[in-house]
Design a protein around this nucleic acid. Structure first.
Lengths: 247, 247
DNA sequence: TTTTGTGTACTTGTATACAAGTATGCCGAC
DNA sequence: GTCGGCATACTTGTATACAAGTACACAAAA
C-alpha cells in the first residue's frame, strides 16, 4: 500500500513513484539514460519536480549520475550487489533474533510467513508471476516487521527495491521462486523450533547463494552501456521478444 | 575528512555541508525555522540549490518539514531517539560479530579503538571538548569499520549525526564522555578476550543507557516550539549564556 | 474588552529563462 | 577513404518569475 497519495502532494511524488515502480519492476532497464526534459514532457510537469524526483531516486540507489552529469538507471556493479545483499542479511538476521525473543511474536510472525509461503506455492502452481512476487515480498515483509523499527524497515524496503532491480536483470523469476520457497520453508522450521543460530545460518546461506547467482550474472555481462533514450516507459522495449536468461 | 570538495561541485553541497555541520555541532538548535530565501541570501546562491540541500538533509533526518510545508531543524521525539539508538545498536553489534570473526582484524581494530580511548582520556584531562568528541567519533568509526560495507558505513554516519544532534540538546559532553570512556574500556576488554556475547551485551547496555538518558531529557522538555528565524548561524543564540543541563 | 475581518508580508511549489558544458554529426580538406 | 574542425542540438546547473497558500498584525465593529 503506497500510503495514500493525495492530489495535494507535491508534483515530484507523481514522478518519483511511477519511475521507481518502472525501475523496480524491470520496465526500465539498468543503463537507460534519463533526460530531465523528456521525463518532464512525459509526466506533464516542468523540470523542477523531475529533478527532485531524480535526486530522491539517486539517494535510494535506483538511479545514478555519471561523471558527465548524465543520469541513468543504476547499472549495478558486483561490489554494489554484494553490499546490498549483505545489508539485507544483516537486517533479516536481526529480525530473526528479535522474532525469537518473545514467543508470542514468534508465533504470530511465523504464521504470517507461512501463509505467505502457501500463497507463493499456489501462485507458482498457477504460473502467476505477479502474485508470486507479491507473496515473496509478503514473506520477507512479515519477517522484517519483527524489527519493530520504522527506520530499519524503511532501509530494508529501499534495499529490497535494489534487490528486485538486480534480480530482474539476472534471473528468471520462476527460478529463484522455486528454489527460494523450499529454503523459506526450511527457515520456518528452524524458527518454529526456536533455533536462532540455525535459522540465521540458513538465512545467510540463502542470501549468499542468491547474491552469488546475481553477481556471477553481472560478471558475465560487464558492459555498462548507456542505452539510447527513447520514450522511457515504452512497453515494446526494442529487443523484448526473447527472454534474456537462457544460459 | 569531508572527501575533498572541489570548486566544481554543484552549489548545493556548499549549502548542505555547512548546514549539516551547524546542526550536528549544535550551532543550529532543533526547532529553528529554516527559510529558503534566507539561506539563499546567506550563502549567496539562489533558492534552487538551497532546496536541493534541504531535501538531502531531510532525507538524513536532520531537518523536517511541518504540515504547513515549513522547514525546520528536526525536533526529535522520544520515539525517533529510540529508533536511532536502536539502529546504532544493531550496526555496532554486527560490527562486533564481524570483528571477532578473524583474529587479525580483531587485533588491528581493537588496537585502533584503544588508541582512540587514550586520546579521549588525554583530551578529557585537558578539558579539550573538541578533541574529546573527535576521539569518541574515532573510537566508534574504528569499530564500525569492521562492517566492511560502505553502505552500512554511510548509514552509520547518518545515524551518528543524529545522535550528535540529540546529545547536544540533552547532555553535557563531559558527562557522557566520562561515563562512556569507562564503558568503552570494558568493551575493549571483552573484545580482547573474544567474548562476543559479553561484548554485545555490554554494547547494548551502553547504548540503551545513553538512549534512556537522552529520552528522559526530551520527555522533560516536550515543547516542540518553532523558534523565530533570525540569522541562522548567529553565535549569540539569544538565551545561550547559561548551560541548560544542570539537573 | 473581545471579536472579526482584512491586508500585508511572508512562506513554498512550480515553471521558465539563461548560461555553460558536452557529444554528435556533418562537411570539407587531405 | 580518413581525419579534423565546426556547427548544432542536446544535456544539466542555476537564477528568477509567478502563483497560491498561510500566518500574523492591525484596525474596526460589537
Amino acid at each position: 500500500m503506497p500510503s495514500a497519495r493525495s492530489p495535494f502532494d507535491p508534483l515530484w511524488v507523481g514522478v518519483a513513484d511511477p519511475l521507481r515502480s518502472a525501475i523496480v519492476e524491470g520496465r526500465l532497464a539498468p543503463g537507460k539514460a534519463l533526460s530531465e526534459n523528456q521525463l518532464a514532457a512525459e509526466y506533464g510537469v516542468s523540470r523542477t519536480p523531475v529533478r527532485e524526483a531524480l535526486r530522491l531516486l539517486m539517494e535510494e540507489g535506483l538511479v545514478e549520475m555519471l561523471p558527465g552529469r548524465k543520469v541513468r538507471v543504476a547499472v549495478p556493479r558486483p561490489s554494489d550487489v554484494r553490499e546490498v545483499y549483505d545489508v539485507r542479511a544483516v537486517l533479516e538476521a536481526e529480525a530473526v533474533r528479535r522474532l525469537l525473543k518473545t514467543e508470542e511474536t514468534a508465533r504470530r510472525v511465523v504464521a504470517e510467513m507461512e501463509r505467505a509461503c502457501d500463497v507463493s506455492d499456489a501462485a507458482l502452481a498457477r504460473d502467476d508471476l505477479t502474485a508470486l512476487a507479491a507473496a515473496n515480498a509478503r514473506f520477507h515483509a512479515a519477517l522484517v516487521s519483527a524489527l519493530g523499527n520504522r527506520r530499519l524497515l524503511a532501509d530494508y524496503e529501499t534495499i529490497y527495491n535494489l534487490v528486485a532491480l538486480y534480480r530482474h536483470q539476472s534471473l528468471r523469476i520462476e527460478y529463484w521462486a522455486e528454489a527460494g520457497n523450499a529454503e523459506h520453508r526450511a527457515l520456518l522450521d528452524r524458527l518454529r523450533r526456536g533455533d536462532e543460530a540455525a535459522a540465521i545460518d540458513l538465512l545467510r546461506a540463502h542470501i549468499e547463494r542468491a547474491c552469488a547467482l546475481v553477481c556471477r550474472r553481472y560478471e558475465q555481462a560487464p558492459a555498462p552501456v548507456i542505452e539510447t533514450p527513447g520514450p522511457s516507459t515504452s512497453p515494446p522495449e526494442t529487443r523484448s521478444t526473447g527472454r534474456e536468461d537462457s544460459p
